[in-house]
Amino acid sequence: MPDAPRTDDEDAFPEEGEQLQVDASALRGLAHPLRGRLLEELTRNGPATATILGRRLGESSGATSYHLRQLSRFGFIDAAPGRSGGRERWWRIRPGGWNMKGHEFLADPRTRAAAEAVLGRYYHQREEHFRDWRELVGERPDDPDVRRWKDAATDSLSHARMTPEEAREFAAALYGFLRDYGRRFEGRTPGDHPDTESVEVQVNIFPVLPPLRERPERDGDS
């Protein structure tokens, strides 16, 4: 897939709804931990200004403003339409999401450190969010929020025997459904939909291969 353009000119970003393909420069721009926290906050709670985000994250508005501009430069966020913050801009996650070739970045010595930082944070957040939910259900089953959501929340494990080509086709169809169905919820915020929560959908598609500990060492392996 082609790399996404990198420029301060917002008109040069991909069309609205088009998925951003992360190149090496954007990957390095995403590696800063505060930028990851800003993206997560905008994803979960909708558009916000640098001042609002700084207050939520315990950071100065100067720091959040700088890192928001960097995220915008690489195309991860853009200005939220229909919102006026006076001298401050309202930022949102750019519609369409983003995608990166993690395996390729990890294999390249020039991008390995940035890829490890970004992917490590991503997988840690996924595990932490699901663990926090399970702990809440186990420790506080009578909590009003838990009682309201426990029958709606779900997880599953399924297996199918496929070729790599079939797995790619299956993934494309699944992600297409999630993207299309999710459009009906775009733009919602805690303020205008107080009866909602940020719902996280986690999907893993991978082959069940013999683990590393069961594989013979190759020449050059330590």
Rank of each mutant, 00 (worst) to 15 (best):
S72T: 10
A107R: 03
M162W: 11
F177D: 06
W98C: 09
R69W: 13
R148V: 11
R215C: 15
G102T: 15
R87C: 12
G85C: 13
D192P: 08
G46A: 01
R184P: 07
D180G: 03
G96Y: 01
P164A: 09
R168G: 15
P5W: 02
R37S: 08
Y66V: 11
D8R: 10
R55N: 15
L34E: 10
E165G: 06
H32E: 12
P194Y: 03
F206E: 10
G86F: 12
V118F: 08
A48L: 00
A153D: 12
F76E: 07
S222K: 03
W91I: 01
Y181D: 06
R183K: 09
P211V: 13
S25A: 12
D145V: 08
E41A: 13
H159T: 14
S158T: 11
D145G: 06
F76D: 05
L157M: 05
G85Q: 09
A114P: 04
E16F: 04
T189W: 06
W90H: 09
A4R: 06
L42M: 06
R92S: 04
A115F: 00
D151A: 09
A48N: 00
L53M: 05
E217S: 15
P211K: 14
A50Q: 03
G29P: 08
R112F: 00
E10A: 14
G176I: 05
A80G: 02
G46M: 00
R134K: 14
G54D: 10
F177M: 04
G54Y: 10
D221I: 11
T43N: 08
T51C: 13
R168P: 11
E197K: 06
F130W: 14
S25D: 11
G82Q: 01
L53H: 01
K101T: 03
H129D: 05
R83V: 02
L209G: 14
Y122T: 15
R121T: 15
V201Y: 06
R55T: 15
D11C: 14
T51E: 15
L136R: 03
D192I: 04
A114V: 07
E135Y: 00
R73S: 01
I205H: 03
R28A: 05
S65F: 08
R94K: 08
D142I: 10
L119P: 01
P190W: 04
P5R: 03
R147L: 07
V199I: 12
Y66T: 11
D143N: 12
A153M: 12
E116R: 08
G36C: 07
L71S: 03
R131E: 05
R92H: 02
R215L: 15
